[in-house]
Design a protein around this nucleic acid. Structure first.
Ligand SMILES: [Mn+2]
Ligand SMILES: [Mn+2]
Ligand SMILES: [Zn+2]
Ligand SMILES: [Zn+2]
Lengths: 138, 138
DNA sequence: GTAAATAATGCACTTCCGTTGCATAGGGCA
DNA sequence: TGCCCTATGCAACGGAAGTGCATTATTTAC
């Protein structure tokens, strides 16, 4: 059986044609992906289907949503050791203001955050804006 | 002269009636404020005027925009020692998932963030979600 | 194998928020 | 008073997320 199908079935996602294609697309991309990105790539497909495909991937835990501050939701497949399903996936995201791309920075964890008395943290979103490695080496 | 007028004039903002009212409203609020919040309070006023008032406050540096991840832009007046005008106002924001309110946490600074080689940071947005002090003490 | 049930897809439409264009009103100044 | 610049108000637009519902595809039941 195909490796893509395996990924989906291991996560209780029925491997339909569209889902396999979207999964492959996401696997090949190195940067976080918006619905519009997917839509442009699969020009013939319907936006709603793609939207719901991405939503399913997030719900089933193979992908996570990224709010990078641009106002456009991005998605990225989870690493093997990712635990976003418990809503505490604490890696940070970097948004390059030059090439406009957003990436997961999984090498470094978010440092512990100090909060005032009686505040309880459940989740942290850390987005760093700046210039990415590719843009800096041009 | 009124203290509110002084704040505006010190920052090159013509103290119109509407602007004074909005400023007072923001001063009295202890939590970050959305355009809709302002709109609801000044029910008789026009949305656009309020929008542009908030925009002016940000541009002139007496207020800063907050992206708390809810998708709704919030605004909060800057503290005296705030330097958001140079885009490096590095305090964090806390969004309570119970009362839905967002506050500036100015007591603690954002810890230094490690980035991979060749990445340059220009700005950081850190939003912690959880339960606020008020909601926790109920 | 056929029929019923279930799930996925596609199209249209909605909602929400931020934003802009343009005409009008107001306020300082010659 | 008349002029100019800015602020205001109304309307409309735009992008993106999301929903309702009919249609199609795929299981499952018989
Ligand atoms: Mn990520
Ligand atoms: Mn703040
Ligand atoms: Zn870049
Ligand atoms: Zn609260």
């Amino acid at each position: 059986m195909d490796v893509l199908e395996k990924i989906l079935e291991n996560n209780n996602i029925k491997p339909t044609a569209m889902r396999l294609l979207v999964l492959q697309f996401l696997l090949n991309r190195k940067v976080a992906t918006s619905l519009t990105d997917v839509e442009n790539y699969f020009a013939k497909s319907d936006r709603t289907t793609l939207f719901r495909t991405l939503k399913t991937f997030v719900e089933k835990g193979i992908s996570h949503k990224i709010d990078d501050g641009t106002g456009i939701t991005k998605y990225a497949l989870c690493e093997d050791n990712c635990h976003c399903e418990i809503d505490t996936d604490l890696h940070l995201h970097f948004h390059c203001t030059k090439c406009n791309e957003t990436v997961c920075i999984t090498e470094y964890k978010i440092p512990p955050i100090h909060l005032p008395k009686d505040y309880t943290a459940e989740n942290v979103n850390l987005v760093v804006k700046g210039i990415c490695d590719k843009c800096n080496s041009k």
